[in-house]
Structure formats: structure tokens, C-alpha cells
Design a protein around this nucleic acid. Structure first.
Lengths: 335, 335
DNA sequence: CTGAAAGCGCTTACAG
DNA sequence: CTGAAAGCGCTTACAG
């Protein structure tokens, strides 16, 4: 009933088993090096006393945390949580702990999270927020992998989708369906994904020689932006027959607002999104979109990071996870 | 350019500043106890050398990790990520690190995560998964708070919604809108929230003396279950005029499937959900539901845990976060 | 196969 | 206000 039953230490086990601390440690870390008999005695002592190694002591001694830092911009966003699941999946296989931090796109917060790389709490980092505040050369030699959003000036490994290519494919799909007057609703100006997707859109419409009929509307990935874009389109751009939204939230916001105003999708306007977040398929009409395999993205990035942590010689690589156009109910063939 | 520029230690700082390790430590942890002049010298030495304290050494010495373990059943579920945001919010204020683990409802995995409580990596835990494998008395004295889902047999603090009351209110709302033949689509059988929400439904329909006209359909919180319930209702229960779904995903699955079959909501059937996840308001028709303030839930639970960790005397409490019925577009008044 | 001993990098009574 | 010294709980060459 005492508040502090004083955790057992390795010495307690050693005493009980009649061996040295070293032997207990060996049984726990490297059992094959100890005789079967001793192993048995020690194992029983460990069990009977309920001993667990003190992680802090191990970290200090080994100079290794067996922990990976994950920084993301928004924990409450499903887009990231599926990447996290992939990361978690590999981490639990490799017996690694993950330390998750929410940067909220605040660089001071991000910096304070990155401290874990210097104070020894984490052996490496996975960056989902597209930013590495501070001089990049400070991170040289630190195991770091960026996911989804590339980081300008950062030379380490990256795992993500080829956004430009995927955006081209999305746009081309609209063109293949007969559309010639297409609008793009972009993501936030300062986001690298926005730029890449917009570039893909631009290339596709230029290639088809319809750029002059197409327009771009500034968005910010929020569904409310899709809604205001709907208003804008209805008022000022009645000629547009299809819209490529830089993400699914905006696509849904757009479709909902159009429906509110009696404009049916895809009958009167076709819409394609990007990401294939969970609700894209539940929403009605279900959203035609580009599927990013986020679980696999997380898995791959974590594997890469682990190999960087354990094997010093890893050279930076860029990995593109295959994407897929999901044909659903928001795009219609015309003329 | 060397791979291992050997992290500076407190002794390096001490040497450079011409003081003892103890003084450096004091400047960092307890500056007001050191003379202004010494403080300045040391601070400068710290900066010039780029020193950061080794967390493992601090943890070992202080016997405190300044870290909180958070266990949740599903990282890829928005329901939990908003609670996480609330937890993160308090953690960053209190300068605490959070260690997030995904149990996947697997009790072995959960147990291995809880190890962090015994190996010193975490000072306390926040449990969102409704389970505490292993003898509960083993956790006695450990700072633990359960969130959203209560844990049977666990006597610690809990933060959540009064699910039974909220479910009664949801059902009563349908009754107030004139409905007398109501169906309930429940959550998974073994989930405590399912039981509480079903109990609320039962009480409300009993109180209104309409229990004989009402039915319950087994669900599991997945939107696909809502869809199959729709089929079931159309085939076997044409008399039903309103449905209380135990969560929003099922409500959306139900509405989508009905729409697919030409049955309009709320014109031909009224539907109310539970949770108010993000998409409940974006979905069309927007879902009438019970809003749980998950951000606040996370904040409150974390605050409670912190006070338990620092102040030994905290007695367990049960905190209900206020909920709110969000009237939107899926419930219609009849007759 | 096993043990004695050093040492990882801090913090904190204790003494002055 | 500051320093010398002990010690937190491990792991790992080194020796035998």
C-alpha cells in the first residue's frame, strides 16, 4: 500500500539470482551468451520480482533512444493520421517508440520539437510538415526523412507522391472526358504541394492547348474555400464545365455549395479532387479523386529512417509511392 | 565534417565557463539561485558551445520522464485525433512530451505500450481505448486517466461525455419531432459506448411509451454498417420513420445507401447521429447529431493527469464534458 | 561462461 | 553563492 514501492533494479535481480549485474544484463539483452542454467535462474528472478529495465539508464549507457520523432502540422487531420498508422506499423515491428509532435505550422513549436534530436530523446525524425526551421546544415548527419511535403534546401531522403504527375493525370482525365474549360482550385500559396499540383494542372492544359479557356482560383485546402469558389464560379465563370480541386475537402465544399444552389454534380459541373481521404468515398456524390497510399507512405518512410539510423552509410533517396485515379461519381463525359 | 562531433556535455560548458558542473546545472534549472555575473558567463558558454542537456541523464537522475503515454485504438480515426490535439495543447503548455501508441484494440500491443509506465519512459497514461489489460490493482498508484470510454474495474479518473444522457436527448429529439416508430443502430457489442448509448435510447422510448414500436439493429460504428442497416430497414421495416445512429459514420453510410435507392433524408426518413465528427457538417444532407467537444475532453484529461503526476494527493474524479445537439438537415418534423 | 569495475551525463544534498 | 562528491541504473570492454 506504500506510495513508492521502490522499483526493483538490476541489482535486486542479481542478488536474488546469486549472479552479477552483468550476467542479468546479458540474460536480458543477449541470452545466447549465457549458460542455460544461469539463464533460467535469472529469468525466474526477473519474473518473480517483476523487474523491468530502466529505459533512462539504458538510453544513457547506449547513447541510443530507440525512439523516432514525428512532426506533423495537424494531428486532427485524417490525411496525416493514416500516414501515422503506417509509421506506427513499422515502429512496432522494429520495437521502436514514436514521439509525435504537432507543429501547428508554428516554426517555434517545430524547433522545440526538433530539440529531441539534440537532447537524445530521439534518434531520428520524420517530418510531415514541409519545414525545417533553422539552418539546414545543422541537421547534416542527423537521420531525417521528409514525408509528403518536400522541404526546400533539405538534402535528406523523401517519401511521397509525385504530385505534379498526379495532378497532370487528374487534369488529363477531365480533358479525356471532353472538358475544355477547366478551373483549378489551388491549395495555400506557401505550400509546396499546392505549387506542384498547380504545375501539373498548368502543364496538362498547356499540352492540350486549352490554357486560354482555363482559370485558377486561390484556395487553402479547407472545405469552406471550396464553397466560396462555388459562389465565384456561379457568378463569374458560367462557362467552366469541370474543376480540378487540389484536395478532397475543397471538392466536397464545392459540391455541397453547388447542391445548395441547385447545381448538380456531375450533371452540370464535373469535379475531381486529390488525396482520397476516407470521406471522399462516403460523400454523395462520391468524389472522383487521386488516391495517395498514405499508409504505405508512412511505412516506407519509417523503414528508410530505420536504415539510416542503424546503417550509417545510407545515401539520401527520393521515393514516390504509386498513386491511382479513383473514378467515382463527380465527373461526367460531355459532348 | 566528422560523423560524430561528440555532443558537448555539461563538463564542457563548465570548463569553458570556469565553473563547476553543479553551477552550470543550476543556471539551467534554477537560475535565480546563481549570481548574475556567473549566470551570464555560463549562459554564454552554453550558447557558444551549443549545449543541450542529455534527457536520458536527467531522467535517470530525477526519476521523472516528463512524458505522458497516450494509448488509443485507432490513430487514423478523426474522433481520436481531435482529443489528441487537446492533449497536445496542454502538454506543450506544461512542457511535457507525449508518447502516442496505437493499440489497434490488441491487448498484447496495449500491454507492451503500458510497459512505458514501468520502464520509466512515461510518468502517467491517458487511455482512450477502454481497456486496461492485466490485473487492475497493478495500476494502483500509477497516474492514469481514461478518456471517452470508461474502463470496467478501473477506479481512476475519467473524462468523457455522459453518453446515456446524450443518447436520451437524441432520441427524445426525434420523439419531439413527432416520430413514434424509431430504430436504433448500435455500436459494436463489446464497446462500452454502445451499451451506454443504447441504454439512453431504451430509456427514452420507454419513457415515451413507444418501445413496442421501436427496434434495435446491431452495428459496429463503420459506415458500411449504416449502409447494410439501410437495406435491412427498406426490406423489413418500412414502418420506421426515424433512426438514431450510435455514431456519425453509420449515419452517413445509412443516408448514402438510402439515397442510392431513391429514399430521401429527411423527407422519407429522419436520421440523427452521434459525435459530430468534422464531416458531419460537410456531408449533404448535413447530419443532425450530438456534438462531443473532443478538444476540450483531451485538454481536461491531460490537466487532470498532470495534477495527478505532480500532486500525489489527487483523488479520482469523473468529469463530463457538456455535449450539444446540433440541429442540421437530417431530421424532419412529422404529422 | 561469468564477474569486477568503469563510466554514460546529469542533479542535489552537504559543506563552506 | 559555489564546489566536491555521490549516485541514479544500466552496459560493456577486459580479464579470467
Amino acid at each position: 500500500m506504500s506510495k513508492n514501492p521502490k522499483r526493483p533494479t538490476i541489482s535486486d535481480v542479481a542478488k536474488l539470482a546469486g549472479v552479477s549485474n552483468a550476467t542479468v544484463s546479458r540474460v536480458l539483452q543477449n541470452p545466447e551468451v549465457v549458460s542455460a542454467a544461469t539463464r533460467k535462474t535469472v529469468t525466474e528472478a526477473v519474473k518473480s520480482i517483476g523487474y523491468r529495465a530502466n529505459t533512462a539508464a539504458q538510453m544513457l549507457r547506449r547513447n541510443r533512444a530507440n525512439t523516432v520523432l514525428v512532426i506533423l502540422p495537424d494531428l486532427a487531420n485524417t490525411f496525416f493520421s493514416e500516414i501515422l498508422s503506417g509509421i506506427e506499423n513499422v515502429a512496432s515491428e522494429a520495437n521502436l517508440t514514436i514521439l509525435i509532435g504537432n507543429s501547428n505550422n508554428d516554426s517555434a513549436r517545430c524547433l522545440s520539437l526538433l530539440e529531441n534530436l539534440w537532447n537524445g530523446r530521439a534518434d531520428g525524425a520524420l517530418l510531415l510538415n514541409g519545414a525545417l526551421p533553422d539552418a539546414e546544415d545543422r541537421y547534416e548527419g542527423k537521420p531525417i526523412v521528409s514525408i509528403s511535403e518536400t522541404i526546400s534546401g533539405f538534402l535528406g531522403s523523401h517519401v511521397g507522391t509525385n504530385n505534379e504527375l498526379a495532378a497532370m493525370d487528374a487534369t488529363q482525365f477531365l480533358i479525356d472526358m471532353g472538358h475544355r474549360k477547366i478551373a483549378h482550385i489551388s491549395g495555400p500559396k506557401d505550400n509546396i504541394l499546392s505549387a506542384q499540383r498547380m504545375a501539373g494542372f498548368d502543364k496538362a492544359v498547356s499540352r492540350a492547348d486549352i490554357a486560354a479557356n482555363c482559370i485558377s482560383i486561390d484556395g487553402d485546402f479547407a472545405s469552406s474555400t471550396g464553397a466560396s469558389a462555388a459562389t465565384n464560379l456561379m457568378k463569374n465563370h458560367a462557362e467552366i464545365t469541370a474543376v480540378f480541386c487540389a484536395n478532397d475537402e475543397m471538392a466536397m465544399g464545392l459540391v455541397s455549395e453547388l447542391a445548395e444552389n441547385g447545381i448538380g454534380v456531375p450533371d452540370q459541373l464535373s469535379v475531381i479532387g486529390f488525396d482520397d481521404i476516407n470521406f471522399a468515398s462516403i460523400y454523395r456524390p462520391s468524389i472522383t479523386t487521386i488516391r495517395q497510399d498514405r499508409f504505405e507512405m508512412g511505412r516506407k518512410a519509417m523503414s528508410l529512417l530505420v536504415s539510416q539510423i542503424t546503417n550509417e552509410a545510407a545515401t539520401p533517396v527520393e521515393v514516390y509511392i504509386p498513386y491511382k485515379l479513383m473514378e467515382r461519381d463527380t465527373v461526367k463525359r460531355i459532348t
